[in-house]
């Protein structure tokens, strides 16, 4: 089995194609949609985990390529330099998945759950302490 995390970008003429359906039924892939957005009249964007046996995954990716879906593998990952973070919470409203979270009941410390991170980079831009770092993903299972 092989798993990748990727951003899929759809041009306006592709947004109505049942692409995910095809990946599941045609290639037997497990698809986990982490985030999806379509801008009106513009391109669509989806962040997904794609999992399947190596050959099916490659064929699924080739299908996306033929169709014209741009696939950006998330080879980067976000880290957090804990000593730099002051737990100010400026990042919290910008994190779309709750990967960055704050314990409002007790400590008010900001926590980071890397498994929920979709590498949108929003936090990197808004962190005033420059505590969020961009690095190579070493956890890829390929």
């Amino acid at each position: 089995m092989k798993k990748i995390k990727a951003v899929l970008r759809f041009s306006p003429e592709l947004v109505e194609e049942p692409v995910i359906y095809a990946l599941i039924t045609g290639y037997g892939l497990r698809v986990n949609i982490l985030r999806a957005a379509i801008d009106t009249g513009k391109q669509g964007r989806m962040v997904v985990d794609l999992e399947g046996d190596s050959q099916n995954l490659d064929q699924g990716l080739a299908y996306l390529d033929r169709l014209g879906v741009e696939v950006q593998s998330l080879s980067t990952q976000i880290g957090r330099a804990e000593e730099a973070c002051t737990s100010c919470t400026a990042c919290i409203p910008h994190c779309p998945t709750g990967a960055l979270n704050v314990d409002r009941q007790a400590t008010w410390k900001v926590g980071f759950d890397a498994d929920r991170c979709i590498v949108c980079l929003s936090c990197v831009e808004v962190c005033i302490s420059k505590a969020m770092t961009v690095g190579e993903n070493s956890q890829r299972t390929d």
Partner: peptide, 21 residues
Amino acid sequence: SGKIRIRGKDVPTGSFSSLAG
């Protein structure tokens, strides 16, 4: 609490002042 209501919309909040600090 993490969100306030402005003009009928729930708006998420963030601070620059560290309460933990």
